[in-house]
Amino acid sequence: MTRKTKSNLQVIGMYLFIGVVFVFISYPLLWTLGLSLNPGTSLYGSTMFPENWSFVHYKWLFFDPSSDYLLWYKNTLIVATITSICSVIVVSLIAYAFSRYNFIGRKNGIYTFLLLQMFPVLMAMVALYLLLNLVNMLDTLTGLILIYIGGAIPMNVFLVKGYFDTLPRELDESAKIDGAGHFRIFFTIMLPLAKPILAVVALFNFMTPFMDFILPSIILRSPENFTLALGLFNFINEQFGNNFTRFAAGAILIAIPIAAVFLYLQRYLISGLTSGATKG
């Protein structure tokens, strides 16, 4: 077998594997999509490809006067965007310190917090409620954002620090000799090179508010402050109001912005490849 045919076979094998994964991924997703287009309310009787499909659930979400969906959407986008931006800033600054400076706690700091975060915290949610009540941030998006940013620090710092560690030290040291300040080195040298991992961090933090319904259910009270996940969860959690099809429609609309952001950030994920040459 020549090298070329072997390579071709490998490529075909890879495509095949990816193809199989595609099928597994898309089956439930198509189901969800089909469900959202079914005019009824129950899972049963819904089909993947409904005969008399309709946008009735989408219409309800957007136009029904008793639907707060758009408001929730707006809230979630606000929370997600701010969380994402702030996290990238806070995380990269901390990671920079961990990667390039010596200070007390450098050695075990990240690991300690990673370990602490492994404790199951359902019981501790009450504490966050009490804390936010104390500082008057209960039922506010600010409180939610702060907790999201804080909770995400250890793991994200770990990731970004790991990435910074792979960047050659000579780069910032030579800049230091040239008289560049701490922040200048950080902003002009480190940040641009770390784009791929920062894109990952941005993505993670953008997604959390779309996914999480537990924390918002503890600290958000007024329906006008709800996030999507919380509002959506209530659709199916209401005592006797199982409304699976509407729920599916709401879920599909969550997936869209996330996929869009991912598509947008991929540019940076891939840019790592091209800039790889300069890193060498």
């Binding site: 990816i18 994964v21 595609f22 991924i25 898309s26 439930p28 997703l29 189901w31 969800t32 469900l35 997604m207 779309f210 996914m211 319904f213 996940a229 959506l232 969860f233 199916i236 699976f244 729920f247 599916a248 879920a251 599909i252 969550i254 997936a255 996330i258 996929a259 991912f262 598509l263 991929q266 994920l269």
Partner: peptide, 20 residues
Amino acid sequence: IRTVLILPWAVPAFVTILIF
């Protein structure tokens, strides 16, 4: 391909689990 592979994550897990 990357975008499709990320899709399961783009739908909130609690939704997927209930659908499953």
